[in-house]
């Protein structure tokens, strides 16, 4: 990718990331997050991580964000109105984040970060090379991941279900008032 495209995509990613935390409507935050994820996915592809870039679009921007969308829709969240909260918290929060960014920048700047540049081998970032690594060096981690996903499925169903015999607290509250 030409350098100006990197600059453009980087600016787009930062602006849409700011949009996530600035928008007052959760749906708008979510759309900004999807824009950030897509931009980062294109940056992945530009960095020769083609498979991971496409996985990012399919899994992250596709599946996980739809899950968020369903929850916003299910909870019927509206634009936040009323007082915006603690101004001091916002001020010091932004200050802390700016300090963190500066600190990270100095830690990750080249004099400290010694990276020996190596030429990428043939087929770098292809599905075959990713799968080859995944099913040899990382086989145990891969299998453990399946247990993690099973635990997540069981856990989320257990959390979201209504216990038998207990009334819906919202219905009970409505009946009482």
């Amino acid at each position: 990718m030409p350098p100006f495209l990197y600059i453009f995509l980087g600016a787009l990613a930062v602006v849409s990331a700011l949009g996530v935390i600035i928008q007052r409507n959760p749906i708008h935050s979510l759309l900004a997050l999807i824009a950030t994820l897509m931009t980062v996915a294109i940056l992945f592809i530009g960095e020769d991580a083609v498979v991971v870039g496409f996985l990012q679009i399919i899994v992250y921007a596709g599946a996980i964000m739809v899950l968020f969308l369903f929850v916003i829709w299910l909870l019927n969240l509206q634009v936040e109105t009323g007082p915006t909260g603690h101004l001091a918290l916002k001020f010091f929060g932004s200050l802390a984040a700016a300090l963190l960014a500066t600190e990270l920048f100095f830690i990750l700047a080249p004099p400290h970060l010694q990276v020996k540049f190596t030429h990428e081998p043939v087929g770098y970032g292809s599905l075959a090379s990713l799968a080859g690594k995944l099913f040899t060096d990382y086989l145990v981690a891969f299998e453990v991941t399946s247990v993690l996903l099973l635990a997540a499925v069981v856990g989320s169903v257990a959390l979201a279900r209504r216990l038998p015999g207990t009334d819906d607290p919202r219905a009970a509250r409505k009946a009482a008032s």
């Binding site: 992945f44 960095e47 020769d48 991580a49 498979v51 991971v52 996985l55 990012q56 899994v59 992250y60 599946a63 996980i64 899950l67 968020f68 929850v71 990276v115 020996k116 540049f117 190596t118 030429h119 990428e120 081998p121 770098y124 970032g125 090379s129 990713l130 080859g132 690594k133 995944l134 060096d137 990382y138 981690a141 991941t145 993690l148 996903l149 635990a151 997540a152 499925v153 856990g155 989320s156 959390l159």
Partner: peptide, 27 residues
């Protein structure tokens, strides 16, 4: 990509999996 190593991409793959599990439980 600068080290010419696939390990970073495999770890990103795992991070995505963990993020999916985390999103399901968190929501």
């Amino acid at each position: 990509s600068r080290l010419g190593s696939m390990d970073g991409q495999v770890i990103v793959f795992f991070v995505m999996t963990v993020a999916a599990a985390e999103a399901a439980v968190g929501l």
